[in-house]
């Protein structure tokens, strides 16, 4: 028996919108720790890891570990039927091949339940070792989204370089080149507007912009984004989800042949 009640149901709606472009089908894993997902895109170039901790739910009952295979587009279709202020409850019985999403309006005058068929998904679970990152950049998520969108109209790849001067996003295409430098800026009115760069050593890596743009679908989840870079390691683009957890996107770099 599984019953997870999330008062801020809009978070789950935003999570689905953030990942459904990247991943078609995925297993949601439910344990005492929380509601989580790890999935790769079909090309095995990017990986998404989601965690919504059990403490973040108003009610969290998970009698035994359960893995539920879902088509994310179908799940998103159902969650779009929930109002932004609705409370969402996820329910499943042991051994059932369906999951139920229950939507309650804030004043309890409308209650809907949507039952979705589960699917069997063979997924490879990757072990992600802790890494020391050469550079960690925290910046406003809307700014990062704007940069990725702007650069993708010029080129297909972005070179992200971190130096003492700041973080530089560069691209090149048939029509020309573009460079956008963001300097560290801690003297802002609100901490979420700051750009903070922690650099152990300079790093420069190349990534496909198509994936970066897909990651920015998570922008509504968090005011800030954290980009962690190390030479020849996948970049980690992390959006914190309120007090509940995170969504992390890992993207393999393009490597010189």
């Amino acid at each position: 028996m599984l019953e997870l009640r999330l008062v801020q149901g809009s978070l789950l709606k935003k999570v689905l919108e953030a990942i459904r472009e990247l991943v078609n089908d995925a297993n949601f894993d439910c344990s005492a720790t929380g509601f989580s997902l790890q999935a790769m895109d079909s090309s095995h170039v990017a990986l998404v890891a989601l965690l919504l901790r059990s403490e973040g739910f108003e009610h969290y009952r998970c009698d035994r570990n359960l893995s539920m295979g879902m088509n994310l587009n179908n799940m998103a279709k159902m969650l779009r039927c929930a109002g932004n202020d609705d409370i969402i409850t996820i329910k499943a019985d042991d051994g059932s091949d369906t999951v139920t999403f229950m939507f309650e309006s804030p004043n309890q005058d409308k209650i809907a339940d949507f039952e979705m068929k589960l699917m069997d998904i063979d997924s490879e679970h990757l072990g992600i070792p802790d890494a020391e990152y050469h550079a960690i950049v925290r910046m406003p998520s809307a700014e990062f989204a704007r940069i990725c969108k702007d650069l993708s109209s010029i080129g297909d790849t972005v070179v992200i370089s971190v130096t003492k001067e700041g973080v530089k996003f560069s691209t090149a295409g048939d029509i020309g080149t573009a460079n956008i430098v963001c300097r560290q800026n801690k003297t802002v009115d609100k901490p979420e507007e700051a750009t903070v760069i922690e650099m152990q050593e300079p790093v420069s890596l190349t990534f496909a912009l198509r994936y970066m743009n897909s990651f920015t679908k998570a922008t509504p989840l968090s005011e800030t984004v954290t980009i962690s870079l190390s030479s020849e390691l996948p970049v980690v683009v992390e959006y914190k989800i309120a007090d509940m957890g995170y969504i992390r996107f890992y993207l393999a770099p393009k490597i010189e042949e």
């Binding site: 790769m40 095995h44 490879e124 990757l126 790849t157 490597i255 010189e256 042949e257």
Partner: peptide, 14 residues
């Protein structure tokens, strides 16, 4: 020439 690496080249199956 830059080649797109795969995420599976960095993380182990576990």
């Amino acid at each position: 020439v830059r080649k797109q690496s795969q995420i599976t080249a960095f993380f182990s199956l576990g």
